[in-house]
């Protein structure tokens, strides 16, 4: 898989750190002290705004990790410590949350995410072949990470992918190269196949 220096299990799950021992030269990871932890102001403000929305500040853990990932590119130890400092939680708590969810990355990742759905409906219509094509197309591009993903909730455009959050489909093998090209150009990706423009298939759904 291009870009990812981390081997993965089939469906994008991270290979866990089973074989990792604790580094006994490190201090225990307690809640970072605000006196000694630098937190970028925008991140701090964002997390504090998120915490204010909930009756219990801990609810903001996922939004806060999303913000940190946006800023740092991934949930790096540094990013986690910053979130921990603002939220008054231990970094371990946050890494436990982050590793539970597929969209939070605790390893460095390329800037662009291409999630190819390879669940049942998509794979019935050739998603596995498209995934191979996508991986091949992205092989040379360090900025694009391709992951086979579980059902993204768009089986109506199967086989489909989510490119930086934009749903596109139905995809054919040729589209893989186009996706890379569009990503490089920086504009919209596969505009003609974007889900947002798709109309309902239900004949009764036509507006008055």
């Amino acid at each position: 898989m291009s870009g990812y220096d981390v081997p993965r299990f089939g469906h994008g799950s991270r290979v866990p750190g089973w074989d990792q021992a604790a580094d006994l030269t490190k201090d225990p990871a307690v809640i970072p002290d605000s006196a000694t932890t630098l937190v970028p102001e925008t991140l701090r403000a964002g997390i504090e705004a998120a915490m204010a929305k909930y009756p219990e500040r801990r609810s903001a853990a996922i939004p806060a990790l999303h913000l940190a990932q946006e800023l740092h590119g991934w949930c790096s130890p540094e990013a986690i410590e910053q979130v921990a400092c603002v939220m008054r939680l231990t970094p371990a708590y946050l890494i436990s949350v982050a590793t539970f969810y597929d969209m939070l990355e605790t390893r460095p990742k390329p800037r662009n995410d291409v999630f190819v759905c390879t669940n049942i409906s998509c794979s019935l219509l050739g998603a596995d072949e498209f995934y191979e094509a996508m991986v091949a197309a992205a092989a040379e591009d360090p900025d694009v990470g391709v992951r086979s993903f579980e059902c993204l909730g768009a089986c109506d455009i199967a086989p489909m992918a989510s490119v930086n959050g934009e749903y596109v489909g139905p995809l054919e093998t040729e589209d893989a190269a186009q996706i890379i090209e569009d990503l490089r150009a920086g504009g919209p990706v596969l505009e003609a196949k974007q889900l947002r423009f798709r109309r309902s298939v239900d004949p009764g759904a036509v507006g008055p």
Binding site: F9, S13, R14, V15, P16, G17, W18, Q20, A21, A22, D23, L24, K26, D27, P28, A29, V30, P77, I80, L89, T90, P91, A92, Y93, L94, I95, S96, T99, F100
Partner: peptide, 25 residues
């Protein structure tokens, strides 16, 4: 102390600490 946690999910879940820090408490 919330230093010892489960990382990952499902059968990949394992007992861990943050970023290789020892569980000293």
């Amino acid at each position: 102390d919330y230093q010892l946690i489960f990382a990952e999910r499902g059968a990949h879940t394992y007992v861990s600490t943050f970023d290789g820090h020892p569980y000293v408490a």
